[in-house]
Design a protein around this nucleic acid. Structure first.
Lengths: 169, 169
DNA sequence: CTATGTATGTAATATCATAACACGTCAACC
DNA sequence: GGTTGACGTGTTATGATATTACATACATAG
């Protein structure tokens, strides 16, 4: 059983692309989610927990209906609001993110860090990673200020190729 | 009849928020679109031209179905592909942009400049402006490179309040 | 004038998302 | 112990966004 600090995925969670003990990575994330929700009084109910587990299975974004069909197979409700509500909860709690470009959702890899990342979306394997966006956000706000615009939230999504997909086979 | 250089909207087209002679601004943009398409051999047909005119009426983003209903009223086809195809053409030609966050489209305010702007979306009046994003893009690419990710396109959209909507009435 | 490519029109359907309401659970309160 | 109220879940129905596939028109090169 690996010490937490031996897991490259957890040590450098930006790098969803890096090989890592993903089972451990996901398990760790779920524990963190439990702790965070317990701390704030938010309720990580069975549906919500299961949706998070589903999102954690891979570093990819899943559509609400993908999640829903998984839930339905497992005996949860099979109508869209079941999935959308759980996903909305996770996003509100900072446990998942919505990827605008894909109309899809992905588990957060920096739970509890109060971050506002940029997303790196691989058009080859469809994996999604988070990258630091502090500098980019600052640059946007500087430009916005020149127009007198007051930024509240900024979405930054980059489409391209992950390390594995850059080298064909 | 104003000299082109007298139009604040055209002199500083970043500032969709600034008061300007919008009729002139739109007319000028249409002329530029004609010139650009003529130069590349692309055909600015009646539907396409009309869609661009519709987008140019305001500095807001319009949904495909909004555009479509306008077209239908005017005797063009009234099925979704009519609107989506014209919009896709305009986006491909750099004459319009898609705003991911709104599932909507807006006329480009920098036609012919080969730009990749950030969008400033006002949640008060729903106007959309373009802002320079060179620095922000560079920052994203720097971070992406650290993960071995090769960026091809980056979407940057800021939500907030425009100058007019910051001061309530 | 006819073959070709491109644009437009239409029907049908797929995909994504929300409103509105019913029911169940559980804790706080009287 | 029953009542109330908040919250979560489930379901129906519908709305909003987008695409596939095919038919038709139309310009232009040959």
């Amino acid at each position: 059983m690996p010490d937490p600090h031996d897991c490259p995925g957890c040590a450098a969670p930006d790098l969803a692309f890096a090989a890592h003990d993903h089972a451990h990575c996901a398990h760790d994330a779920l524990n963190r989610a439990e702790a965070l929700t317990a701390a704030t009084g938010a309720r990580l109910t069975p549906v919500r927990r299961r949706v998070l587990e589903i999102l954690l299975e891979e570093h990819k974004a899943l559509g609400a209906y993908d999640v829903l069909s998984r839930l339905a197979q497992e005996g949860f409700g099979n109508q869209p609001p079941v999935a959308y509500r759980a996903l909305e909860f996770l996003v509100d709690q900072g446990l998942a993110h919505r990827i605008q470009r894909l109309n899809a959702f992905t588990a957060c890899t920096h739970m509890g860090e109060d971050h506002a990342p940029a997303f790196l979306i691989c058009r080859g394997c469809h994996s999604v990673a988070e990258a630091a966006a502090t500098a980019a956000r600052a640059a946007v706000e500087t430009e916005a200020a020149r127009a007198g615009f007051q930024v509240e939230r900024t979405t930054i999504e980059a489409l391209g190729l992950c390390p594995a997909c850059r080298v064909p086979a």
